[in-house]
Amino acid sequence: MITWGMVGNSHDASLAVFRDDKPVWACMAKDFSKVDNDPDFNWTMLESARQTYGPPDEIVWYEKPFWKTTRQYYAGQGWLHKENNIKKYLRQWDIRTPISYAWHHRAHAAYGYYTSGFKNATILVMDSIGEWESLTIWTGVGNKLTKHYSQWYPHSVGLFYSAMTQRCGLVANKEEYKIANMASKGNDRLVGLVQKELMHNDLNGGLPGVHFKHNLHKGCKWLLPNMNTKSDLNNLAYATQFLYEKILKSNSDYAKRRLKSKNLIIVGGCALNKQANEKIRSDWKKVYVPKNPGDPGSCIGAVASKIKKHLDYDEKIWYNK
């Protein structure tokens, strides 16, 4: 039985091949196309999978297209049902295999937990948006995943970080990795102003999530409009990284106090912030961040969420030419 887990039609397309219940190969589209953040599959990656492991008997897609469409409509992006027709989308590569659909955040949580080797864990999923969810907290015990908290769009720490990336003069959804370096050249002068303008929470670990005063999906170029010197932008970057670390710490503290496990898994696009992850590592017995913790990893997570058990997994299955 060959199962493909697939992520695409948005950004960073990826593919995982499972033989029975074992992941044997995974790749990102950009590994073959050499296009950063490539949202679409390509014939080379698909033929590599087909020729090596055979055609798929089933496909598990990493999110629910209908629910994504409803959120896009709510966000003012229009009714994108045709654009989110995954069966039609895959036919351009002659893929006509039966498809099932995972929940976006459950796929993230499943990827983190079922590849961790932990018998129990707290799982913190943070990204921009998955269907409607943007931050969820889970526990894994044995083979069971249980969701304990869910925060919905438009409140999103991922959208906050991307909006602030744009405000700092960088390209959103592409240059977030530059914020930490800019922050190292700044200071805390604007932290209080940014937090007061954008956030409701005290971020002291008393409550989960983070609630914003504005919908940051379209950015925040309007924020502190007179702060535009190089020094100002570095200070805005400092505030961005500082507040993100505070959000992560607050949710980590909340989860540690309310849930039983001493192991933490961080997954979702925000888990790429290694500097922030290190700040809370000493608070837990063990902290695990899987390889490719953002959407690309959900090609494995989507299938894992259906299998519902720990995987015989080695991160070396990821293609690396």
Rank of each mutant, 00 (worst) to 15 (best):
L193P: 02
Y111E: 13
Q151H: 09
K246F: 00
P296L: 01
E176K: 10
L224F: 09
G5T: 06
V171Q: 14
D202E: 15
Y101K: 04
L80E: 06
W61S: 01
K308I: 02
D40C: 08
W93Q: 03
T165D: 05
G294K: 03
A110C: 07
N85C: 10
Q72W: 04
N187A: 06
A75D: 11
L216S: 04
L80I: 02
A271V: 09
E176C: 11
P55M: 04
G78H: 08
V157R: 02
A239N: 11
N173S: 06
S134V: 10
D94K: 12
Y101W: 04
F160L: 03
D188W: 07
K144T: 14
L216W: 02
G219W: 03
G78Q: 04
G186K: 07
N9P: 01
W67C: 05
N143W: 08
D314I: 07
Q166H: 09
G297R: 15
K291H: 13
F160A: 09
M45K: 03
F18L: 06
V17F: 08
L170Y: 07
R71I: 09
I179H: 05
F160S: 05
M199Q: 11
N273M: 08
W67M: 13
F212H: 08
S305P: 01
N42M: 08
Y313F: 15
S250K: 11
D188A: 13
K213D: 11
K256A: 12
K64T: 09
P154Y: 02
K34H: 15
Q92G: 08
A180W: 06
I300V: 15
V141W: 03
R19K: 15
G8V: 00
L90K: 01
A107E: 05
D202V: 12
H217A: 11
Y73I: 11
Q195A: 13
P296Y: 00
Y149M: 07
R281A: 13
E58H: 14
L170D: 05
K309F: 04
T139P: 02
E47K: 14
E197A: 15
V141H: 11
D31C: 01
A304H: 05
P225K: 06
L236N: 02
I247S: 11
V287A: 00
R167V: 00
I280D: 01
G294R: 05
G192Y: 06
W318V: 09
T44Y: 08
H148V: 04
G142A: 08
L203W: 10
M6K: 00
T165M: 07
V289W: 05
N85M: 07
L190K: 03
Y73C: 09
L170S: 04
L145F: 05
M227C: 10
K22Y: 03
M1E: 10
F118C: 08
A16P: 10
L224I: 10
K22D: 00
V157P: 12
S150P: 01
N226A: 08
A237T: 01
A110T: 07
W284V: 08
H108C: 03
S298W: 04
T139I: 01
P23W: 02
E175Q: 15
R50Q: 01
T165C: 11
P23M: 07
K30F: 01
K246H: 02
L207N: 15
H105S: 01
P225S: 02
I265L: 09
H211W: 14
D36V: 05
H104Y: 08
E133T: 10
G205F: 14
T70Y: 14
D232A: 02
S48Y: 09
S116R: 12
V194R: 08
L159V: 00
D188R: 11
K213F: 05
N234R: 07
W79F: 15
V17P: 10
